[in-house]
Computed example of a mutant assay.
Amino acid sequence: MVSPEGESVPAFETSTVKCRGCTGENVVPVVDVGAQPSADYFPPADTPGPDPRWPLELWLCRDCTLVQLGPVEPQLPEEALAVESATSIAHAESSVKEILRDYPALAGGVVFEFASHHGGSWLEHLYAAGSRLAGDGEKADLVIDVHGIVHEPQYGEMLQLRAERLAPGGLLVMEFHHLLPLFVGNQFDTIRHGHWAYVSLRALQNVAALHGLAVESVKQVDMFGGSLMVMLRHTGDAKPDATVDVLLEDEDAAGIADEVQLASLQEAAWHAAGALHDELTRHKAAGRTVLGYGAPSKAPVLLDLSKVTTDLLPFTVDMAPGKHGRRIPGGCMVPIRPIDELRAARPDVVLVLTWDIADEVIAQLEADGGWGATYLVPLPEPHEVVGSR
């Protein structure tokens, strides 16, 4: 296999791979973004390279349609350093209000939450509404998984645990990054070690059925570049509404269960990565300074595929104090600094690496009127947003 730049790319190795969802063996590779560092590994800035890397591939199960990481698993422990965004915090509060509005019988009931590495816990808001946390082994009227299950290597087994925790007549609410916007929006940098499944509604429906669950309703939300909030019940209790069929039709029209269609994401990723490199090179040639905002787990893949180093991006900044004095892993070696250093430098262009909360980032930097910077959002293709003048 050869990249658009003419570089040799390792071909997929053939092996017997069991699906992380249904455990079937009809699983095929569809996307290869090369060997990448572990996404949440941010070494101290003075740590010399090269950093450890592992293959990063997407595979499709032809039976249940779950898209998932390939068989190679990183063995590097990851330290949680991120700080939860204001967008995520506000989303948790508004989500609880909407669920209790739509399902008033759940107010004051027994709840259980499967925690996520991303934060966004609903519990504080549910407690305020009178809910009680389920005790050890107790079944819950409302079971919540907000961006949690994708961090578990065996998706099907973990879905079974959620089904077992659900009381008869209860509601399971699952929110996750949706495969459809990942595909159509070329969000290739969201493919990362530690996120084991890239879920469509169709795949969730198929795997859920194996564990006595059925999808009742679905809602599209803006989190992380496009997520789904899916309401499920035990199969005998579920009464699916029209939102389910509408979204399944959208997924089918996009071809996200088709291995040929999914494979086109690889070429789209290389194209966007090359375009970002060209855009940063253009700014440098014109004498403009470019600095980054954010050091998310998606930055290593984006910058590595784009061949961006400190020559084009001298440093980036992040809200998380635990990341200061560290660097983005991989080939870029871009150091991570406090946000005040970005404001002090007043770059001509800010590359928004946390593109999924670009509005929040721009509002934060423009709160005092800004300095006339242009904001560069990298995906689906690099495009500019002009700040205050």
Rank of each mutant, 00 (worst) to 15 (best):
G292H: 11
A45K: 02
Q205F: 03
G137K: 06
S116K: 05
L123I: 08
E267P: 05
G70I: 12
L106M: 15
G148T: 00
E79K: 03
K97S: 05
P382V: 03
A367M: 11
L232P: 14
V110A: 14
P77C: 03
V67F: 05
V317E: 08
L179Q: 04
A268E: 08
S88A: 07
V218I: 08
Y41P: 05
E216T: 11
W59I: 01
R282V: 01
V83Y: 14
T309R: 00
G294S: 13
K239P: 07
R389C: 05
L126R: 14
V301Q: 01
V111Y: 07
Q187E: 04
A167M: 11
P380M: 01
S38W: 14
E381W: 12
G226Q: 05
E384N: 04
L365G: 12
D348M: 13
G185E: 14
R20V: 14
S3L: 08
I144S: 06
H324F: 14
S217L: 14
G49V: 12
V215N: 09
I256F: 08
T190D: 10
L100Y: 03
G21L: 06
V215L: 07
G369F: 01
S15T: 13
I357M: 15
G109R: 07
R233Y: 02
A128F: 03
G325P: 10
T16K: 10
V317R: 09
E138T: 08
R282Q: 02
A203R: 14
D222R: 05
I357D: 13
R53V: 06
C61R: 14
F188A: 09
D136N: 12
E381F: 12
E124G: 15
S38F: 02
D250C: 05
A268H: 10
D32Q: 07
A345L: 04
G330V: 03
G137W: 10
E381R: 03
V308L: 02
E279M: 00
P380N: 15
A82E: 12
L291V: 15
V67I: 11
C332S: 12
S227H: 06
A273C: 04
V246D: 03
P77H: 00
L248V: 01
V221L: 07
R326M: 01
P37V: 09
A115K: 15
K139S: 02
S8V: 15
F176N: 13
S94G: 04
E124K: 04
T235Y: 01
S8R: 13
V27A: 06
A286H: 07
V2D: 14
G287I: 08
W270P: 00
G120C: 06
L60W: 10
